[in-house]
Design a protein around this nucleic acid. Sequence first.
DNA 1: ACATATATTAAACAGTTGTTTAAAACAGAT
DNA 2: ATCTGTTTTAAACAACTGTTTAATATATGT
Lengths: 207, 207
Amino acid sequence: MNQSTEEKIKQAALSVFIQKGSANCTSREIAREAGMNVALVNYYFRSKSKLFALIFESVMQDFLKSMVQVFSSELPIREKIKILIEREFEFLGKHPDIPNFVINELARNPEAIHGIIPVLQMVNESGVFDEARKLQEQGDMRQMDIVQITLLIMSNCQYPFMAQPLMKVIHGVSNETYKEHLIAHKDHAVAMVLGYLFPNDQITPHE
Amino acid sequence: MNQSTEEKIKQAALSVFIQKGSANCTSREIAREAGMNVALVNYYFRSKSKLFALIFESVMQDFLKSMVQVFSSELPIREKIKILIEREFEFLGKHPDIPNFVINELARNPEAIHGIIPVLQMVNESGVFDEARKLQEQGDMRQMDIVQITLLIMSNCQYPFMAQPLMKVIHGVSNETYKEHLIAHKDHAVAMVLGYLFPNDQITPHE
DNA sequence: ACATATATTAAACAGTTGTTTAAAACAGAT
DNA sequence: ATCTGTTTTAAACAACTGTTTAATATATGT
């Protein structure tokens, strides 16, 4: 509970930025959420845009960290993909607003681009994609570009969370029902992606 | 070229709203894009939010129209899904910003909810989901909830367009290269979704 | 030509925005 | 207690927001 003022502001900014986006929230809103005066936000972080840059960078890190970690582990490729998708669903269950936030800022906020450099560095250092390519060459994996493999996995993980408001209204289901659909969808995503990437496997390994 | 003032404003509003979102653009910006005075926007549409409601409603219509149309056709189920995905890619190729726009407004703009009622009506009247359920019962289609089938299809169509800025920066590819990836991805989406929904088919029917 | 309704403009309105300023409250050291 | 540096506050700043007003231009019908 004994949290420094600086940390309180960061946490409030994280919450407000993700919920409303950088353009649709005010400095005063962040200050109110942190329970203090507006001037303090600029006292600690110079400007709203500098604070945003800081927050966005850390969100980008969290957003891609789990993916990178799984791939630098020593598991067989099928397990890696399975665990990757499961981890992604676990992460998104806790932070369902992050994909929309990230994609939206990247598309609409020119400043957001700067927050990406350290993430690129992390991804490159991890050698994720090189390893994926290697596994693809030596194995029975379907031949397709790494970009598209990434798309395959991320589409089926992130979109279901991003589209929650749309899906709820189209199908007229409650929050709770949709959460159950999300849980069930995880298994479909694993089975479908594995089934497509490894067409020679008869039955997707279960459990 | 002989376009009425009202239509000019609508068109400018459509463009600006989709590019920047309802919260991140100004009435003056819309007026400037339409080449006229700010006051005219309110003269024709009363307020910014009324104009937005109008635009959002029509975008929602376009957004879901093709999907509904395909399903009320008389094709066999596999063809329906294939054409549905291909149409979706065609539509998104022309309007890549719409999914992000729709999902973002629904998540962050309370007013956007109102724009959905006529769309719901359209979807209900079309009987899309009832027919999908019927096809599922009588055929060899994998048993899964309609919500999840919708998710399967929309995820693999819309996300690749929504994530374009993210993917470009992660994989370091140009606009043109990514466009090629999108084209190639369409076939993967068709094959993967059909392969998963109809597990008894040996090989996905090709062309 | 004139009268009337419509379309368009520049200017103003009150409220909000990010940011700065100057004063106050607080801490710790001497 | 006094000094010193740091934290916090209320108030102010100019710029910008959506919206309105009152005046001007344009079109239309007679």
